[in-house]
Computed example of a mutant assay.
Amino acid sequence: MTITNNDLLVRLATEADAGPLIGVLAEAFHQGPLADWLIPDPADRRTVYYRYFKDTFYHGLAYGQVYTTSDQTAVAIWYPRLEPAPTDTRNRLEALEHIAGAYAPKFVLLEEMFDAFHPDDPHHHLAYLAVDPTRQNRGIGAALLADHHRRLDQLGLPAYLEASNMRNRRLYLRLGYTAGPTIVLPTDGPIIWRMWRGAPTTSGGRTSFPRTRPRRRSL
């Protein structure tokens, strides 16, 4: 556990944090161009997002690293990707059909695009960073990231993420990420900014954004 940002306590999340943190994820991502594209109806979006982020939270606990703050107002879900990760495509399609119903095709498309353009170089993937909307712009998200960034620098590993709006893109640029080639979602979808925080180098710089060749997925 680490103290950052004027005594903000960052700790690993557990199943006991599920209720508050699923709510933080669903609320933090409820607005924005990606949310509007995935589910145009705000009422439907609230229902589907709760199911989606419930699945996301428990998946993070099982296969990744989930961090929160002492007051449960923020959450970060990281996945160590030290080698290319296989995807259980058929089971994931079934899960998304159950979670998103009529909106499943766009969720499937989004996840397939993210997977196809994911770097192969060893790294940690920041899948989600969410701060309670009533507590945003107070440095909480930056403090949550700084805690993990220190660990990555000690390990000599880079970080990768996908930013879905310009506000988040600017935040990550300030925190030492560089922007790589974008993903443009079809059917009038928004632009996704792929971002990379390189590993420290002996010269004092950081490794550059890796080359990525789109991968094909098949059932």
Rank of each mutant, 00 (worst) to 15 (best):
Y52K: 06
D121A: 15
V108N: 00
R194G: 09
D44Q: 15
F29R: 11
Q65H: 14
H148V: 12
K106Q: 10
M113Q: 14
P133H: 01
A104C: 04
V184K: 13
L8H: 11
H59E: 14
A100W: 02
N137A: 12
I191A: 09
Q136R: 05
Y128E: 13
D121C: 14
G180A: 07
E94N: 12
D17Y: 04
W193P: 03
L34G: 03
T182Y: 03
D188K: 10
T4R: 15
T4Y: 12
R197Q: 13
P186G: 05
G189R: 04
V75H: 04
G205H: 12
N91V: 08
H123Q: 08
R215D: 02
G176W: 06
L161C: 04
Y160E: 08
F114V: 13
G176T: 09
R138W: 04
R194L: 06
A43I: 13
L145V: 05
Y177W: 07
Y52T: 08
I39C: 13
A143W: 02
D147S: 15
E83Q: 15
R213K: 14
T4M: 13
Y160V: 10
L38G: 10
T56E: 05
W37Q: 08
D41C: 09
T134A: 15
L61M: 06
R90G: 04
I191L: 14
P40S: 09
Y128L: 14
G204C: 03
L8R: 08
S218E: 10
N137K: 15
R151L: 09
P181T: 11
G156W: 01
D41N: 14
F209I: 12
R197D: 04
E15R: 14
T212S: 01
A43K: 08
T14V: 09
P119N: 00
I183W: 03
P186F: 01
W78I: 02
P210Y: 06
R51Y: 04
I192F: 04
E97K: 14
D120V: 11
E111H: 15
I183F: 00
E94F: 11
A127T: 12
N165K: 10
D55K: 05
S203V: 09
L145G: 02
H30G: 00
T73A: 08
Y67V: 07
A102Y: 07
T134R: 15
S70W: 05
A116T: 13
A85P: 00
R169M: 07
A85V: 13
I39R: 05
T89H: 12
R138V: 00
Y50H: 15
N137L: 11
W193F: 13
L157C: 06
T202H: 09
H125Y: 15
G141P: 09
Y128R: 10
H123R: 06
L126I: 07
Y79S: 10
R194C: 06
R213W: 00
R211C: 02
A199C: 11
V10Y: 10
A76W: 04
E83M: 00
R216T: 12
L21E: 02
N137S: 15
L175G: 04
N165Y: 03
H125I: 02
S164L: 07
E83W: 00
L109V: 07
G205Y: 08
D88M: 04
A26K: 03
L12I: 08
R92I: 03
T201P: 04
E162H: 01
L61H: 06
F107C: 13
G32D: 08
R45K: 11
H125V: 11
Y58C: 01
A16N: 12
L109P: 03
T212E: 02
Y160L: 08
R51V: 02
E111C: 08
P105E: 00
Q136E: 01
